[in-house]
């Protein structure tokens, strides 16, 4: 959790310095969800998330410098600079990507769950989204299907109370999100998304069910984000008192005070050391990212297709009449 917090703060700093561009959605305040959920899963369980994905990438153990380099748009990034912040992925770690179209990844996650069953594995899929994503058609179509086929997928809804700037009660007629799954007869739970152990236990329970073939589940994690929706958000719409009050319940200090210190599991000196180590690790990641070269221009046409066919060059560009072929760029 500390790594995620420090990483996100560094991202904010580097966005301000224009090292990172585009949409940058930070995870401050929500760390306990990714950390708790992934602690309950096996490393070969599949993970699919929305665009607020850095926390999941780090909790899944992706290479920290590579994640930072991706945010910088550099060749050393997790996808070589093609995707940026919203599309971190590492298939070797069963992280199938962050996705930026609200609701778009829900069917994909469910299809992965089908593949797991089809191939007779006992893997489960964790599919993460925000509560604002529970109003779109694919949410309902996918929940129904997943339940109908008893597929091993856990829909994890991070209810941070706002979809961009729109408050939950303004965008959803049902404000206890887990209830939406009940319409599909799906197992549904609600947990404190700021309590890392509660998150771990809930996901462990639901994963066990799914692994045994008892079907999908929806888990609502009640939380709050400490920063704006993205770095483009002036965050004028949330009352300051509300934000400040929420910050009083910080998942990191809660775990530290209520669990680790209380049970004498850690000493202050160790806490300080973790903080220092993590800061050094993140600083090194930023330096790696800065030193990583921009992707080569000749990679533009790479990987557009997995297989070439007639009239398509191996690089994916289309074969044009001879007069134009010589200038197969922006003009010709």
């Amino acid at each position: 959790m500390v790594l995620i917090r420090v990483f996100e703060d560094k991202c904010a700093e580097m966005y301000a310095k224009a090292k990172i561009a585009g949409f940058l959605h930070l995870y401050n305040g929500q760390e306990a969800i990714a950390v708790g959920a992934l602690a309950a899963l096996r490393p070969d369980d599949d993970l699919v998330t929305h665009y607020r994905d850095h926390g999941y990438a780090l909790a899944r153990g992706l290479d920290v410098p590579a994640v930072m380099a991706e945010l910088y748009g550099r060749s050393g990034g997790t996808t070589g600079g093609r995707g940026g912040s919203m599309h971190i992925a590492d298939v070797s770690k069963h992280f199938w990507g962050g996705y930026a179209i609200v609701g778009g990844h829900l069917p994909l996650a469910t299809g992965l769950a089908y593949a797991a069953v089809h191939h007779k594995t006992d893997r489960v899929v964790l599919c993460v989204m925000g509560e604002g994503s529970t109003n779109i058609g694919t949410f309902h179509a996918t929940l129904n299907w997943a339940q109908l086929w008893r597929l091993p997928v856990i829909f994890l809804v991070e209810n941070n109370q706002y979809a961009m700037g729109t408050a939950l009660s303004v965008h959803s007629s049902v404000t206890e999100i887990y209830k939406k799954a009940l319409a599909y007869d799906m197992c549904a739970e609600r947990a404190d998304g700021k309590d890392v152990l509660a998150m771990r236990d809930a996901v462990a329970r639901l994963a066990e069910r799914a692994r045994k073939g008892e079907g999908p589940a929806l888990l609502e994690a009640v939380t709050y984000r400490f920063r704006g929706h993205s770095m483009a958000d002036s965050d004028v719409q949330r009352p300051r008192e509300e934000v400040n009050e929420q910050k009083q319940r910080d998942p990191i200090t809660m775990f530290l005070n209520d669990v680790l210190f209380k049970q004498n599991l850690i000493a202050q000196a160790e806490v300080d050391q973790i903080q220092k180590d993590v800061e050094a690790e993140v600083e090194a990641a930023a330096q790696f990212a800065d030193a990583s070269p921009e992707p080569e221009l000749n990679t533009l046409y790479k990987d557009i297709y997995a297989q070439s066919v007639e009239n398509m060059q191996v690089d994916g560009s289309l074969i044009r009449p001879a007069t134009v072929l010589s200038r197969n760029g922006k003009h010709g």
């Binding site: 748009g73 921009e294 992707p295 560009s317």
Partner: peptide, 22 residues
């Protein structure tokens, strides 16, 4: 003649994006 964008999914990297649109 035509001046147009390159027929690629738009990459995030600064230099690649610049090279993609006219």
């Amino acid at each position: 003649a035509r001046v147009a964008g390159l027929e690629v999914p738009m990459p995030y990297a600064r230099n690649l994006e610049r090279a993609t649109v006219p």
